[in-house]
Simulated scan of single mutants.
Amino acid sequence: MQLPRNIQLGQRPIRENPLLNSSRELFVRAVIFLKGKNIMYDARYFKRLLMLAAFKAALGLGAVQASPVNAAAIPPQAAPIHELRVETTDILNYDERGSTTNVILDFYIGAGASVTSFAWDVNVTSYAGSYLSEMQVTFSDTVGRGVTFTPGDGDDFDGTADYAGYQDLSELGLVFQVGSDGILRLEFHDGFKDLGFDEPEGQWNTGTLTFGISPVPEPSTAAMVLGGLLLISRAAGRRRPGKPTGRMPAQ
């Protein structure tokens, strides 16, 4: 499949979600309750308790907006996200990809999460001597595997322009996963260095880049729900009356 010309292969800490904390607490209480002697009589209450815990866990997996973070400061269990929106206001384009002068932003989206789509709505300026068609952003994992996007592809002139659109990356075979560090890295760069060293080639004036994220299910949440279902099944089995034998009681 031929790719569109403009798409190529190419510090606030995240706080733990309180909804997941409360669902874990409910589950722990339920397990403690099972160790008591009233399981035969309170199975209905326990079932409602487990359903509430599962519901709260599901809410905890909802969409949230991520913030740029330092990879070393990421907690080991941060809530996964389904969408990442990045503001591009006043970001400068300096040099070709890989230059130490480029603006790089890191976002935590969850270990092993996949980037599935990409939308843009931006206003950019290319300075005199450079081209709009050379302003690029690459979004990738921390190793560099990802996608390079050129909003003004084909506009071989300087000036200011607006660009907007949406791309489902699965249609192009460009869905990719981030690594175990959970970092999605954005590097704003130029396709070719036209101007002097350390002199910016252009600027992303305003707008947003929005990424669709497919998170890996949280193991603790999945285990909690499955464990709750198993305990409910066992409780129901203990309350099930014995089958009649068909024998008449002795007179």
Rank of each mutant, 00 (worst) to 15 (best):
V86A: 04
E87P: 03
T88M: 03
T89P: 00
D90G: 01
D90W: 00
I91Y: 01
I91L: 07
N93I: 15
Y94K: 03
D95P: 05
D95T: 09
E96P: 06
G98M: 11
S99W: 03
T100K: 07
T100D: 14
T101D: 15
N102K: 11
V103K: 08
L105Q: 13
D106C: 09
D106M: 11
D106A: 12
F107I: 14
Y108E: 11
I109S: 08
G110C: 12
G110F: 15
A111E: 11
A111H: 02
A111V: 06
G112Q: 12
G112M: 13
G112S: 12
A113M: 06
S114H: 14
S114Y: 13
V115A: 10
V115W: 07
S117V: 13
S117P: 09
F118C: 10
F118V: 14
F118Y: 15
A119R: 09
W120L: 02
D121L: 02
V124C: 02
V124M: 01
S126F: 01
Y127D: 11
G129Q: 07
S130I: 04
S130P: 05
S130Q: 12
Y131K: 05
L132R: 01
L132T: 03
S133I: 04
M135E: 12
Q136D: 12
Q136T: 15
V137E: 09
V137Y: 06
T138D: 06
T138W: 04
F139K: 08
S140E: 15
S140L: 07
T142C: 05
T142F: 04
V143S: 13
V143A: 14
G144W: 10
G146N: 11
G146Y: 15
V147P: 05
F149N: 09
T150D: 05
P151H: 09
D153W: 10
D153F: 09
D153L: 09
G154L: 06
D155F: 09
D155I: 01
D156H: 09
D158F: 02
D158T: 00
D158S: 01
T160C: 02
A161R: 00
A161W: 01
Y163F: 12
A164M: 03
A164K: 01
A164F: 07
G165K: 04
G165R: 05
Q167I: 06
L169C: 13
S170K: 09
E171M: 07
L174K: 04
F176I: 11
F176N: 06
Q177D: 15
G179W: 06
D181F: 12
I183Q: 11
L184F: 09
R185F: 15
E187N: 15
F188A: 08
H189I: 02
D190P: 02
G191K: 02
G191T: 05
G191Y: 04
F192V: 14
F192I: 10
D194M: 13
L195H: 07
L195Y: 08
F197P: 08
D198V: 14
E199Q: 13
E199V: 15
E199M: 08
G202S: 03
G202T: 04
Q203Y: 01
Q203P: 00
N205F: 04
G207Q: 09
G207E: 10
T208E: 13
